[in-house]
Amino acid sequence: MVKKLGSPFMFLLMVIISLISLYPFYTMIIMGTYESNQLYTGIKFWFGDSLNKNLASVFSINFLNYYKNSLVVAISTTVLGVLVCSAAGFALGKYQFKGKKLMLAIVIGMLMIPSQLSIIAFVIEMRWFGWMDTLWPLIIPPAASAFGVFWMTQFAKNTIPTEVLESARIDGCNEMSVFLRIAMPFMRPAFVTLALLLFLWSWNSFLTPLIVLNSDALYTIPLGIRGLAGQFRNDNAAQILGITLGTIPVLFFFIAFSKNLIEGLASSAVKG
């Protein structure tokens, strides 16, 4: 009885919540089809007729190249980051060694410090490596994400049974095989969640590219889109269209892996 009464109500509630959540996203899509000076003349519910004009503005800047740079940076960070973080997480979660507590404390400490605070030291370091005005500072440091290491450590500690690892060792597995063949499958849900988060952070990163990149040829999407804002005028509609186009890969990844993402978040929420 309760269920029968509750279901239509829940359905309606979910429809309303979905509409509220989706409306800003829908608005972003339709705003990219208006002219900038029409944007604030009233609430828009349907598409405008300036899509081609805005597309021309978006492609008047080096948008495809920004897209390529963003993809290179985000994919590299994700692949490298997942490997580094899961290896570090497995080691910190499942091995006992000297200095482990200190290392974990450093990782947690890094989580607490906003990146803006350390930006000057970061730039000095990147200069020292000779990495200024290259894509390396956007790939290598974020691949060793403090959050990623912490996340994988917690996951490895809670989900990989020590007995399984020990039986693998008894059966003759070396440590690399234990990690790749035994630990990795256990960590898969966290692996996917982390990959999505790393991709998203890298894709949306603005401050680091702003500071380390000087050449337009290396700009990523968030930095490049800002080029549509001049000193006196903002081509808001073209910027919004650029953002919409920039959201496509993130959406694609999210839709493709949403099941794993939720699984990863849920399992760590229960066990973490």
Binding site: V72, I75, S76, W131, M132, T134, L180, N214
Partner: peptide, 27 residues
């Protein structure tokens, strides 16, 4: 079972080579 990791590493090295080209230009 090791193949996916090899593939990932190869992809990564290709992608990073692309970064290297950009960085050379800058330098």
């Amino acid at each position: 079972k090791l193949m996916p990791f090899v593939a990932i590493l190869l992809t990564l090295s290709l992608v990073l080579t692309a970064c290297g080209q950009s960085s050379n230009t800058g330098k």
